[in-house]
């Protein structure tokens, strides 16, 4: 996403988005009851000033014309896919099914470990999490299918 943009382009984009947020906070603060809105107005104003300052100085900053180091899009995609699947499935399917699957997915595709090492690490780590959180700390982790 950020490969095509230089740092000063990124800074301008950040300044614009942050300015919208800060302005909204300050406006919302204006409509609050009593003195509840004083602090949001102050911090929203401070944020707006910072955004203007950033937008005005980003071109002159050191390394402004450089771009962030390129990231491996394929790995980023795979990682994000795994993370989203983990978050979506952890409640319905269950922690102790999704955790080893997530590890197998990552260790095999991103770390390119052998099947033996992958399975050993996935099972060992999940067992560790079970012992520490479920047994020792008695945390009711989402059980999912295993609850039936």
């Amino acid at each position: 996403m950020d490969r095509a943009m230089t740092f000063h382009g990124i800074d301008r984009l950040v300044a614009l988005i942050a300015a919208i947020v800060c302005f909204s906070v300050a406006v919302a603060g204006w409509g609050m009851r009593g003195d509840a809105g004083v602090f949001p107005i102050i911090v929203g104003g401070l944020g707006l000033l910072a955004c203007v300052w950033l937008a005005l100085t980003c071109r002159r900053a050191e390394g402004a014309s450089q771009r962030p180091a390129p990231s491996d899009r394929q790995r980023l995609g795979l990682w994000c896919l795994g993370v989203v699947a983990l978050l979506v499935l952890i409640e319905p399917v269950g922690t102790f099914i999704v955790l080893p699957l997530f590890l197998i997915f990552n260790l095999k595709l991103l770390a390119r470990l052998s099947w033996r090492t992958t399975l050993l690490l996935a099972v060992g780590f999940t067992l560790g999490i079970y012992l520490v959180f479920a047994r020792l700390l008695a945390v009711p982790l989402p059980a999912g299918w295993l609850a039936i």
Binding site: A15, A18, V21, V43, L46, G47, A50
Partner: peptide, 10 residues
């Protein structure tokens, strides 16, 4: 840093 702090204050 100021922008980051402003976000934290918000």
């Amino acid at each position: 840093g100021v922008l980051s702090a402003a976000l934290g204050l918000i």
